[in-house]
């Protein structure tokens, strides 16, 4: 069956791979983000790959005023409505240390912006009695580390929000999946030192799609990150606080 998916932050490599996988199954797509030229290019690509409809709309995590046209489009769409949130930004921790004002943007991009959208979207899922939300968090949100804890904190907040939303929408037939990717080979990680076991965006997209079909709650992708993060989470705080991993 064909569904409508709204993809926030659709210009990211992971989102592009996910949108393409959905296209090949014939779904309708609303591709939302800030770079309209790039979104239009992606919309053309998705249409040629089999999407029943693909259109580009503006979404800005930091400005709510663009949200309305997306909701209008969703209202008019038939069938199940779904959303996937790939939005996010990761300034270097050192830059935030120099300028704490950057924290606000990090929280907007990774948490409050997506949550603002999803909070308005949730009633649509409840009204239609179904639909899936995919929220892309990060393994960085599982524990605060010295090298990346501002970003980690925003993702952790998003995880908590998604857990609550899952609790809420499950009662109405909807479903929420929290995706925690490890290192993904994208513009965000390109050239950053210390990357290992970097996953291709297409691999992550495939894992997410499988999780959607199986109605999983929380996934790590690639799957081995579940084990890595289990170890990292079990390290006692007195020891962990001395580590720089």
């Amino acid at each position: 069956m064909q569904h409508t998916w709204v993809i926030l932050g659709a210009t990211s490599a992971m989102a592009r791979a996910f949108a393409r996988a959905l296209s090949e199954q014939g779904h309708a797509l609303i591709l939302a983000g800030r770079d309209m030229d790039d979104l239009k290019t992606l919309a053309a690509d998705c249409t040629l790959r089999g999407a029943s409809d693909a259109r580009a709309l503006r979404f800005d995590a930091r400005e709510a005023k663009h949200d309305a046209p997306i909701f209008d489009a969703l209202e008019q769409a038939e069938g199940t409505l779904n959303a996937a949130v790939f939005i996010g930004s990761m300034p270097e921790q050192a830059r935030i240390d120099d300028n704490p004002l950057l924290l606000q943007g990090v929280m907007q991009d990774n948490f409050t912006g997506p949550a603002r959208f999803l909070h308005a979207f949730a009633p649509m899922i409840e009204a239609r009695g179904g639909g899936t939300i995919v929220g892309v968090g990060s393994v960085a949100g599982d524990r605060g580390r010295v090298g990346n804890y501002a970003y980690g904190a925003s993702k952790s907040a998003f995880h908590t929000y998604l857990a609550g939303l899952r609790n809420r929408l499950g009662r109405a037939g909807g479903h929420v999946i929290t995706v925690k990717p490890g290192f993904v080979d994208s513009a965000m990680t390109w050239g950053i030192k210390g990357m290992f076991l970097v996953a291709a965006p297409a691999t992550v997209a495939r894992d997410i799609l499988r999780a959607v079909n199986k109605r999983r709650n929380v996934i790590y992708t690639p799957g081995f990150w579940r084990l890595i993060m289990l170890i990292i989470r079990t390290i006692p705080e007195p020891i962990f606080k001395k580590l720089s991993i």
């Binding site: 210009t11 990211s12 030229d37 390109w190």
Partner: peptide, 8 residues
């Protein structure tokens, strides 16, 4: 460099 969009 590995641009992911034309603007990059």
């Amino acid at each position: 460099a590995r641009p992911e969009r034309i603007s990059a």
